[in-house]
Design a protein around this nucleic acid. Structure first.
Length: 233
DNA sequence: GCGACAG
DNA sequence: ATCTTGTCGC
């Protein structure tokens, strides 16, 4: 960590699925779906990839100027993978590495775009909501497919959207970020309202399906982009 | 009991 | 998520 004072507590994992789910319910109660993000000087995008056949979890975080969307910093954190992928418990597997990457950024972002769901989760605590609650930072979840919920047909043009419903509640949106391209599943994670989340995501979608913060982090996390700057002694 | 199931 | 070339389309 280079910022020194910031150290986020990673979620615990002892193999007890029931305990993890109980913790999710507790943390979900702390989620605030109201707009509390400041005028955005800086935004960040985070995503995770794997190396060594899954033995190593690699998280990437990219800091961008909120206005120009120009990348200000790109960092990578590597940690040994300590649990398998379990639907509904993704954050317990990926958040530890993501938090370390966030700590390596030269400054704290005012909003974080996370690859995965926000409150559009069985217990209301997708990885974006989990990240938001443990860091206190405003966060939005941007997923490529649905984990839970149903929805009506969505228009085919950029900006078209329909609510993602679950147990009679709107838990997110199915948002068309690009004409004719498979829609994104957007849900607020923390300190962002259900109404604002899709507007912010759309504002950061330029010529690609994914919003810039997430797209850049995605490129760094997976092994594409010709391994720009990594290596950690 | 039988599927579904973010990444 | 990851294993993988070329190919169809804006």
């Amino acid at each position: 960590m280079q910022r020194g004072t910031t150290h986020y507590a990673a979620p615990p994992w002892d193999g007890d699925v029931a305990r993890a789910r109980a913790l999710q319910v507790e943390l979900a109660a702390q989620v605030r779906l109201v707009d509390e993000h400041p005028p955005l000087p800086y935004v960040a995008g985070v995503d995770v990839g794997f190396e060594e056949d899954g033995a190593v979890t690699r998280a990437a975080a990219v800091l961008l100027d909120a206005q120009t969307m120009e990348p200000q910093a790109e960092v990578i954190a590597r940690l040994p993978t300590r649990m398998p992928y379990i639907p509904g418990l993704l954050s317990f597997r990926e958040l530890p590495a993501v938090l370390q990457a966030l700590e390596q950024l030269p400054r704290t972002p005012d909003l974080v775009f996370v690859d995965g769901h926000g409150v559009a989760h069985p217990r209301g605590l997708g990885i974006a909501a989990h990240l938001g609650v443990v860091t206190g930072l405003p966060a939005i979840g941007v997923a490529k497919s649905i984990l839970v919920g149903t929805h009506d047909a969505v228009g085919t043009r950029r900006g078209d959207r329909v609510p993602l419903m679950h147990q009679g509640r709107t838990i997110g949106w199915v948002l068309r970020s690009k004409d004719r391209i498979r829609p994104l599943i957007v849900s607020p994670g923390h300190r962002v309202s259900m109404e604002t989340a899709p507007a912010l995501v759309l504002a950061y979608c330029t010529r690609y399906r994914l919003p810039e913060p997430t797209r850049l982090a995605d490129r760094l996390a997976s092994r594409r982009g010709r391994d720009i700057k990594s290596r950690a002694p």
